[in-house]
Design a binder for these strands. Structure first.
Lengths: 213, 213, 213, 213
DNA sequence: AATGAATGAGCATTCATTCAT
DNA sequence: TATGAATGAATGCTCATTCAT
């Protein structure tokens, strides 16, 4: 919600015709793909407009600058992921199952939006974009945290710092999605189940875990 | 004889004097810090040599190009981390404790080399550098895998795909190190213990885990 | 349709507007003059655009590189000289007179395009450009050869290797044009007649020639 | 003589040891070869010293600058050619035969000093070096002119401007040497004879020449 | 809404030359 | 004599952005 309303003040906020909206979307998608392939900096505005077969004016008609376009891509991506998460979890009463569904949704989203994944990673490495990412991540944590807390309260999850548990889940999910799905070309479902298992049980065998914890 | 043999080496692989080696190291460290702060692309060679108070020629006396310098930084960083890992694990007989030590070493290394962390992340997002990172990661996995396998064989760890378990460990460790130590300014030791716990036990409470698995 | 087809052309082979064509021509002419005066290498792109009072981008909007611009100058020059030659010879039936006309045209062209002369000479001295020049020279020889052969067949010219005779003509013409016209400031007509005489008769007096040949 | 004495005032005029003289000669020869192959400008001082396997100091110990080195190459080349000419002509009483010998000597010299040929050509195209070349050429003309004048006075050569005849000879000789020997790989002797014939008789058949002149 | 043309600061890199040893 | 190191102005070129139409 907040993420949405902010957009409205930007300089280049035109009331776009239907055709204009299609153009803008086309620019967003094409740029995102090109940024993902070549990197943000190595991709020039010329690359983008040439790749689309349009003049430079088109780009600056729809976006204030290359940086603003990239910001928009990041915001849209994060909003889209968040919406997916919410829908997936909506009707699930069990906290553990909610977490499981969240993990599965993340892996699936990363699978179907492979190119956005690398953009989010890049954005984190540059001061200008990092806050945006951090914000999104905090949001993701804030979204997941209540479920973990509920799980602990219900005695279903370990009585550990819920923030740590939540961040652990995010770390495992992102990493396994990248390594297994994006780099290893394994099916998203397998990776999702692997991430779920790891998050729920860790690596120890039940007997060892019982003896140690 | 001497006249001929001198020329055989590759372009900028010089035999350096002691002074020269210090300069090269200085360049590597200063550049790494600057890349980490401003980003690789936004940092110009001019930024680097000006920051060091030397002429531009110095840079190109020691490195073939900005890209090559960055490669060197990445290689050095990965080699250093790996060496730390090996030393930490060397005398530990128990597979689980080896894994634990590995996690702690990673977190500590990332804490003391905060600036390198972001560089490794950035490198993954650009085609030119990604192979180097993937190589390093495969190495890390190959290094950890035997311990996980040994743990499973000894009945200490879950009978799951050892590669998945290993990658899960790496994912949790990196993510918690970044979020807790680098972004959250928590002590490295706490983050290390948090990562160890998460990796060993997952998020479920022992009773729930016993019932479900 | 339009979007796709636009991109098919090579890098900087643009469809230029009338204004664009004027700019390109202006760049070609100004660069040629500057190259001729200062030399190709000592003339920087900055020299050119500053001399023209335009931004640097203009240069690279019209030409892929300094080298490519120079190539274009060479090609245009050779094409222009060749066209002159053809027109001059077109309606002349006598082979000897055709050769004479060719010589006169060359000298006149070199006179009116003094600056191009030195560029062609320079181009021959650098590996990158030499093939272009050799090609042009072969073309020139191929153009003149038939007339010499016709002259020999008609018993008008010496029964000697026609290629050698042709090359001799080119050598005399170029050299006398340079020395007499460009360096000696003599009228092109005089130089042309001198070249014609030398080519037709050589240096011997008729009586001596008769006795010796 | 004048060319020689001038050298003595240059800044870097050292009394060289035997070893030093060898080094200097080595530098002159290697540079000349490299300039001829890659061009004067594209050949850097680094290229030269690296190719020779020595440090930069060596270069600047023996030559004031790259430009000065090149000047020296040009001067040496011209002096050497002139000395050859003089020796070849020394004892020949007949003016025509003296010219013939001069032509043959030129072609042979250009054959055995192929790489210098292109350097002389290049030098003519750059303001800084052109005077040196012009001077050498004037010298060559001044050397040949008396023989042509003597030939005319003796009724052996055409009563035409002796300077034009001389320059014609130089033009034919240079051009045929380059085209036939350097580019066409024909034996120097053949090219020399071709040049001699062309210069003496021109292209017309004796009968035609008689009728026209 | 869109184009081709233009801008000019900025970039990575080169290179003749000098310096310290 | 010679070396490795250093200098820094200059070079060819790029590219985000703007302008005129």
């Amino acid at each position: 919600m907040a993420l949405l309303s902010r957009r409205i003040q930007a300089e280049v906020t035109r009331r776009l015709t239907a055709r204009g909206q299609r153009r803008q979307q086309q620019l967003l998608e094409f740029s995102a793909a090109m940024f993902a392939t070549k990197g943000y900096h190595p991709t020039s505005v010329t690359d983008i407009v040439d790749g689309l077969g349009v003049g430079k004016g088109v780009f600056y008609w729809y976006f204030e600058s290359k940086e603003e376009l990239f910001r928009q891509i990041l915001i849209d991506a994060q909003r889209d992921l968040r919406r997916s998460q919410r829908q997936a979890i909506a009707d699930e009463p069990d906290p553990v199952r909610r977490i499981e569904q969240g993990i599965r949704t993340s892996v699936n989203w990363l699978d179907t939006h492979r190119h956005l994944f690398v953009l989010l990673e890049f954005a984190r490495t540059e001061e200008r974009f990092a806050p945006l990412i951090r914000q999104g991540e905090e949001q993701a944590v804030a979204d997941a945290l209540p479920h973990v807390k509920a799980g602990i309260a219900a005695g279903l999850m370990r009585r550990d710092d819920p923030l740590v548990l939540t961040q652990g889940i995010l770390g495992v999910t992102d990493h396994l999605a990248r390594v297994l799905v994006l780099e290893g070309n394994r099916p998203a479902e397998d990776a999702a189940e692997a991430a779920v298992s790891f998050c729920l049980y860790g690596i120890l065998s039940p007997s060892t875990a019982g003896r140690r914890s």
